[in-house]
């Protein structure tokens, strides 16, 4: 019956995720502040003109430890608790792209493959010989190549773009789950405590049952 348990759990993981992930570039999210700070900077320059982050406020950025002067520069005269709303109205977006660019607050959680998907997507632009830009992760995309991956051939510059994408996705991962690190920290204590408690309960059980001999 152990098999039953394990396979039932496995059941929840057996999904087409794997086939999609095979194409994605492996990517490790950075959780340290400098990477996230660079990421939000790059995001404000490259993505924020079209994309909202409606669940992230300037105050959240300040609490995270992002440079206050930069935040004040981005927010202008909006209050601190305003969300990171894009500069583009939905109507203008509909006119240019025929769709509203999706909100980015949950992007790394909202796609199969998670952060790796977003990372691979940002770097997935290429030019066909006849000069048309495509994306091999999301062929139907309407977003123009934001980081210029398709037009850059220089190796050093491409590495630079990879780094930018890496920082942006690190920031987006934080934005999608701001309590993740706190959750892990608390998790270690909870599991440690439970292991001790379970050991104690095991000995109590053993002692009580030893009366039966």
């Amino acid at each position: 019956m152990n098999k039953f348990f394990i396979s039932l759990m496995l059941c929840s993981f057996v999904s087409p995720v794997w086939s999609a992930e095979a194409m994605l570039e492996t990517f490790k999210v950075d959780t340290d502040l400098p990477a996230i700070a660079r990421g939000v900077d790059d995001l404000m320059n490259n993505c924020h003109s079209c994309h909202n982050l409606k669940y992230v406020t300037y105050l959240d950025l300040a609490k995270l430890g992002i440079d206050r002067q930069k935040i004040d520069g981005w927010r202008g005269d909006q209050p601190m608790d305003a969300p990171l709303a894009s500069l583009m109205s939905d109507e203008a977006a509909m006119q240019s792209f025929n769709l509203v660019p999706p909100d980015l607050s949950l992007m790394t959680k909202a796609r199969e493959g998670g952060a790796s998907y977003v990372y691979s997507y940002l770097l997935g632009y290429y030019n066909t010989p006849d000069g048309v830009t495509h994306n091999h992760i999301f062929p139907a995309t309407k977003m123009p190549d934001p980081l210029g991956m398709s037009t850059t051939t220089d190796h050093a510059q491409r590495e630079e773009i990879r780094k930018t994408a890496h920082d942006i996705v690190s920031f987006l991962s934080w934005a999608a789950d701001p309590h993740e690190q706190e959750r892990y920290r608390l998790g270690y204590y909870v599991i440690g405590y439970l292991v001790i408690l379970t050991l104690l309960l095991y000995f109590v059980k053993k002692q009580i049952w030893s009366r039966l001999k």
């Binding site: 405590y193 439970l194 001790i196 408690l197 104690l200 309960l201 000995f203 109590v204 002692q207 009580i208």
Partner: peptide, 16 residues
Amino acid sequence: RRNFLIKVTTVVGGAG
């Protein structure tokens, strides 16, 4: 010893 073990477990469990 048994009483001590049960007491310790009760305290640890109660704290949790």
